[in-house]
Design a protein around this nucleic acid. Sequence first.
DNA 1: CTGCATCCGGGCCGATACTG
DNA 2: CAGTATCGGCCCGGATGCAG
Lengths: 227, 227
Amino acid sequence: MRSYGQYCALARALDVIGDRWSLLIVRELLGGGRRYNQLLEGLPGIATNLLADRLRQLETEGVLERDNEGRYALTAWGEGLREPLYDLARWAAPVVMARPAGEDSFRSEWLEHPIAIIYGGTDRRRPTMAVEVRSGERPMTIESSDGDIRVREGRHPAPDVVLSGPPDAILGLLAGFLDPALAEALGVEISGKAGRLRRLRPVLAHPSRSLDAATRAAARPKASAPR
Amino acid sequence: MRSYGQYCALARALDVIGDRWSLLIVRELLGGGRRYNQLLEGLPGIATNLLADRLRQLETEGVLERDNEGRYALTAWGEGLREPLYDLARWAAPVVMARPAGEDSFRSEWLEHPIAIIYGGTDRRRPTMAVEVRSGERPMTIESSDGDIRVREGRHPAPDVVLSGPPDAILGLLAGFLDPALAEALGVEISGKAGRLRRLRPVLAHPSRSLDAATRAAARPKASAPR
DNA sequence: CTGCATCCGGGCCGATACTG
DNA sequence: CAGTATCGGCCCGGATGCAG
């Protein structure tokens, strides 16, 4: 990308990570080092030459590097983008995530980030429990223990709750914006006791938006629900 | 811009503010409502049609609106971008602001943001004082009172210190990365007691970078100093 | 003077094909 | 598996025109 040519930290930051796709590449790498084809998989819509271009540029700028196995990984500086990106997501989410997912693509690995935002921090009042989520290609497991909540790939042998269906309704349910009945109306299949989800104490970013989110989501035609 | 088509808060945030120039328009509006031509002035290099396009898009997305006098101003949601943008700038600054300003453009109003970052928060130990800065078109005044530091346009009747010269060296001095002698070697004219600047207690983002910043800045040819 | 619209050359983007 | 090559089209940047 052409430089803005401004002596301003924001403009120069955008000279580094302002290109189309650059920040989404960083998002993919927040989960650890990835191979080229893994990145292609996690970035639906990107052209192969663009991915190669961006990787080269981000490497020369010092945001990422290739590890000894040829995989792409964030440098310490690149890892520092996590909080700015989460802040951007937190800013946008109340407005843009309330819109239905529609035809937008979804990768199950992306669950990690909204879950980290919804259940940020340690809260000892959280019970130990496991929730299995099936949305996207692979099953994912959300585990709560010692007040912390983590996400990992794969199934769980004895989950307390299993959720499957469209990602927007599942996230609405987990975030506490949708109650179980409404989530089911939007295509989520729930097995186990959905009521226990509340005890994970989601951090409600903007409670005033919850009604808005619910009504907008409800306006979505039910036909497009499961995927 | 074409949508990424991903159900991900970051991707959808970038659908809203990921276009070239969009975030810099937001930066300009963080200082309050601005007229079209003021924006053109604060965004050196932007084409008029692009400014018009971006303003329209950001307005329909709900990031900004036109006030009753026809000026462009951030909505409450748009104002929420301040912290994410400051975080991005804080992330980039230790690396990219250490590079000399060179031919990059600089507007004196931009001082507001780095000063807010350098002197973030209230610190009662700060003395009441005023620093006049002359870099860019207009003189700016930095005032410290009651532990807070603010920037405003215009001169000061009796400043404790006056700094004029290239913006990179002035900011390096204010941030505490350069001592007065080195700043003068880089083209800064100092009148008043530069030693008092330390008492404003800049928040050093990355002390480990300070040497790096000094040495890199020193590598700049002295010819390009004043502007 | 403000606030754009139009036109045009060049570069970036997106999709597909292809190669070591 | 990990990219490179190619090409149409759209976006960007700069200049200019013009209506209120």
